[in-house]
Design a protein around this nucleic acid. Structure first.
Lengths: 387, 387
DNA sequence: CTGAAAGCGCTAACAC
DNA sequence: GTGTTAGCGCTTTCAG
């Protein structure tokens, strides 16, 4: 572009490079009229480092050094020429090539149950934010809460040779250590064995944990739920119904257990627990079930997650009952929909975006210690209290 | 594992391979006691194709042929040995290496404004579903609705040499063709020039469109909104207030325009329009603004998107007004929160997940034509109608 | 400080 | 059908 700069046609000659006329470069650019030129490929190739080096009249090594972070110094004159050439050609380093050469990819793999679920959406946003800061790329996979699927994905993910793996799959991270269920643990170990870091939400599904990895983002489910239970009791509620996931699912157990502890401490009783999974529909059907068994006015329903609580609310409405003074409801997470429902949902706020960000940091920062994630009870209109 | 199978220590010798003792393989595995063995790297390397070939006693080419889809036939005996060796070593092809060698990566890059927003979350889910079916990987980037950021990201994305790019960034896809604002268009052209496909939601931000790409997922915003407008008029509403994005933003213009057309056709009038962007807060402040100017009971508010409408609802509540008979509200998209609010939100349902899936197909299928995405008016409680 | 050359792990002609 | 051998685009010793 700049007329002062090297003519794109012969900079190589200008700097005297005798061995630069390898067949590749030559056939590709030097002689457009050369009859041996292979038929043009369907699309032009993106500029390569080779092109930049040639145009700048420097070696591949030098071009690489100035363009892609190397600590080695390059003379200002050369540096400039390389930068100019790169600019002119619109050069962008080929990530895959760099990855193969360096032996490590810039990928962070994120595994979620369902990216359309606001819970995971927020976590993903946090992860993406971190990755962006560090120039890393995040790939996303959906488990659909299916253990087999998750295992298959994990297997396939190894192909990416990701720098790290973030598991926010709400898997049945059962506390019973028999690694029997699913081959995931060994798959995860494989990840770490070759240097990848695995960070899980909740507890690591595998036992042991002496691997260099074994990092996990823990949310104070029990504590938050206990505070919520106590607060609800203070509002005058005396009997509660819990809606949770299957027994053995950590997050659910912790929240249900914590809530019960607090609620009982405050003088209440958890009458019974209905179980399903983390989806909205599950919350709705559990609630329907509960209603069928009979729910006294003034009862409080604790949904193990907001999404589930939201499902419960819709079931309560569908049954012609009122949410609030008739049947009170509270949840956990504080996803954004919770403040939109009406009556707005009482819940425990969890900084999900921050949690995702921390998960990212746990993957990339060698020295890392979790900052505790503050959980906070937020009382809204769905639990007006009993007179 | 199977005692009957080849001893892992000497299968290569068993098949007589003379040239197989290149320094690399040799130093890496053959002589653990060899004093010239380099100090062990921090982590063991993942098994390479080379390892598999050696253990199976075949050439690299053969191993490659059986393990990674090649059409060329390989004798059953060899195929089995290779598979066994791969299995035993836990081999997984290195995606980056394959990408460099093949000259094309398995990546589909998805660009969204905000992954925590349910609108984009659903689209992302659809994209991920498609990618999973085809064994492709999707990377995700967040524009935060910032044009500069989007351009930077686009630039960086080129490094991934993605097979395709899906733009669901709700960018200011202004209809004024002056490509002046932002260098994005040229960046997109660059993508297509080297063979990548660009698929955009709404219309392509660049002009022309004769590139082989120029595919876009169009949602019938005008039509859906018009139907909604007509329906609202039929419910008896006579005056409406619109909440949209800045003038010139396609999606917003189309929805606002379509709504007005239908509403007016039905006998109503759109009194005025307040503008902001696609975020919830924006909807809330626009509504607050509207309320300050005075909103008669019986007025209908049309939020250009559900998220915005949800924001408006919260503002209405905050102002001590009632949603429904006092001030009616309707939106567009039918994100899941819309059925959870109370009163539930009247809206136009858009199959977002399906749209994401189609976007994926548009990227990978050479012959592709968009299946029309059915939009459907869904009347709920937020527009009870006027007596 | 620069450049030549040997890889990284895998693919794809091209020979045998 | 199988193996050899160049690459792919980039990094990184190792000599100068």
């Amino acid at each position: 572009m700049n007329p002062e700069s090297l003519s794109p046609a012969e900079p190589a000659a200008a700097t005297g490079a005798s061995s630069r006329a390898e067949p590749t470069a030559a056939t590709r650019d030097a002689a457009p009229t050369d009859p041996t030129t292979p038929p043009a490929s369907p699309f032009p190739h993106a500029a390569t480092l080779h092109d930049v080096a040639r145009d700048a009249g420097v070696s591949l090594a030098t071009a690489s050094r100035v363009l892609n972070g190397s600590e080695r110094k390059v003379a200002e004159a050369f540096r400039e020429r390389v930068e100019r050439a790169a600019e002119a050609l619109g050069y962008t380093p080929n990530m895959s090539a760099q990855a193969t050469a360096r032996g490590r990819s810039p990928i962070i793999a994120l595994l979620v149950a369902d990216i359309a679920d606001p819970y995971f959406g927020q976590i993903a946003a946090g992860v993406a934010r971190g990755a962006d800061e560090r120039g890393l790329v995040v790939t996303i996979s959906i488990t659909e809460r299916d253990q087999d699927r998750e295992n298959r994905i994990l297997r396939a993910l190894r192909g990416q040779r990701p720098q790290g793996l973030i598991l926010a799959a709400s898997r049945a991270d059962r506390s019973d250590d028999t690694g029997v269920a699913g081959s995931a643990p060994s798959e995860l170990e494989a990840f770490e064995r070759y240097g990848g870091r695995v960070v899980a939400f909740g507890d690591r599904p595998d036992v042991g944990g002496e691997g260099r990895g074994a990092r996990s983002i823990v949310i104070d489910n029990a504590g938050g739920a206990e505070a919520l239970g106590r607060r609800m009791a203070a509002l005058g509620y005396r009997t509660a119904i819990g809606i949770g996931a299957a027994e053995g699912v950590r997050t659910s157990d912790d929240r249900l257990g914590g809530f019960a502890r607090g609620f009982v401490a405050g003088g209440g009783t958890v009458a019974r627990i209905h179980r399903g999974d983390f989806r909205r529909e599950s919350g709705a059907s559990a609630m329907t079930e509960a209603l069928a068994e009979g729910v006294e006015p003034g009862t409080l329903v604790f949904g193990m997650s907001d999404v589930v609580a939201l499902g419960a609310i819709s079931a309560i409405r569908a049954a012609g009952r009122q949410v609030g003074t008739d049947i009170a409801v509270c949840g956990f997470d504080d996803v954004s929909a919770s403040s939109d429902v009406s009556p707005s949902l009482t819940t425990v706020r969890v900084p999900l975006n921050e949690a995702g960000y921390q998960a990212f940091r746990a993957v990339v920062d060698e020295d890392w210690t979790q900052d505790p994630l503050p959980v906070e009870v937020i009382v809204r209109d769905s639990t007006p209290g009993v007179a």
